[in-house]
Design a protein around this nucleic acid. Structure first.
Lengths: 241, 241
DNA sequence: TTTGACAGCTTGTCTAAACAAGTTTATAGT
DNA sequence: ACTATAAACTTGTTTAGACAAGCTGTCAAA
């Protein structure tokens, strides 16, 4: 990372995870961080603010930055993390089956709001994948990527990691996403690919992902077996005036 | 709110929602904000950073702060918002039935980790409530509040708003929470209170809420009818070094 | 017409300083 | 032994300034 605050954030985070700063202990004070890293106080404070934001510490005035219990990475996580990144972090035995690949599909464009408001249908690349975890098919991912942003996608990228291709090869800057989680009855496709009984339920995560320049480019529908689904979140209470 | 950044955050947020700054437009530049509000640039930047964090704007270098589509408040929301606050914001017709109130209950203390690690059981006040939305019972909330933090809770507080009592009456500063969402088959209690068939599924949200001094004080199990459940989230991608 | 350089905007990063306010500890006085 | 005060820590807020880097339009040169 280029900026100092992120470097310090990563360093402190690593030391929290390695229990150099264990649960219930205090991080070095802001002034100590200045000396330790050779930075100004505000720079250190930015790193601490991010740690607090993500649930690793709680800042207490007059005392310091307390290391608190944070959510471990579970599957699937909140945040934008690609499946491959996640599986790697967790050491999960996983396989990726591309069961559909259509480089010339169409999608109603009302989903991609700001971009092309006049066009009613947008050309997309459609990818359908089944995630097999420990030998059991658990998730169906349906991705639709705007061809105006990503003209071509090699099938091998879908088989390995889509994000590695988008960020690494194409240099796209993936910035943010909105997600919606609902519970829905399994449809025929679900039952077929995931070998489920009738009456089974699915956790469905629909998300729109956008680039740093605010162009939405990817719509995803991720359908999870109910019994395999878990979502963890950390939230801070906002005080409104 | 006391600090300027929060004041400006609230003011900008209001103007975004009232479409003074509509979707797709740019907020005043940072230097303009300085003049508009009579503040320094860093103070304005803190307000903008919070707006970006919560998904209202996307900052684009060289251009400005673009107003992007943000999640409307849906039910239930991410974040820590009390049921009453939420229902009020949404104008939902809602009723609150306290179906259980035990001021002398016990709960395994391993949930409240840092506080009392040696004690195996913690004294809590147990509250069970059914949320009735538009005449239909939709949610069962089971709350357990540590008596070491909140010694007594009037039953009327449970009938109206628990958070209003904790923050308003007792002056407690509720700071953060970790949540976990899973899908589980409905149990007998669910079926009884929510009038469900056998084989019905529930969305279960378990959460631990803590104060500003990092003391966890509340464990909640919120059980939602599957067909009424929806969770919306906004996430930014983190770049790791 | 096209190209290229540049000025003037924008946000991003970083620093140094000052003061307010909450916590802890040492100390002096009772 | 107890208490009140003060000093020395902590984080919280705010400012002013500097320079880097990305975007856009202007204007002059080719």
């Amino acid at each position: 990372m280029r900026n100092k605050a992120t470097l310090i954030y990563n360093d402190l985070l690593q030391k929290i995870e390695q229990e150099v700063y264990p649960l219930g202990s205090y991080l070095p004070s802001e002034n100590q961080l200045c000396e330790l890293y050779g930075i100004s106080r505000e720079t250190g404070r930015k790193a601490l603010a991010s740690l607090a934001e993500n649930g690793y510490i709680q800042k207490i005035r007059g005392k310091g930055s307390l290391v608190i219990e944070h959510r471990q990475y579970e599957f699937p996580v909140s945040g934008i993390v690609s499946y491959q990144e996640l599986a790697h972090q967790l050491g999960i035995q996983t396989r990726n089956e591309v069961v559909g690949f259509n480089p010339n599909a169409q999608l109603p464009a009302h989903r991609f709001t700001i971009v092309e408001p006049t066009v009613t249908v947008a050309p997309v690349t459609a990818i359908k994948r089944v995630r097999v975890i420990n030998g059991e098919p658990a998730i169906i991912d349906k991705d639709y990527l705007l061809k105006s942003v990503v003209p071509t996608i090699p099938k091998t990228a879908a088989e390995t990691s889509l994000y590695a291709y988008l960020e690494g090869q194409l240099g796209l800057q993936i910035a943010y996403a909105t997600k919606e989680i609902t519970m829905e009855p399994a449809n025929e496709e679900d039952r077929e690919y995931l070998q489920l009984d009738k009456g089974a339920y699915m956790a469905v995560v629909r998300s729109m992902t956008s680039l740093a320049d605010a162009r939405p480019f990817q719509y995803t529908e991720s359908r999870h077996r109910a019994d395999k689904f878990r979502f963890r979140d950390f939230a801070r209470r906002q005080k409104r005036g």
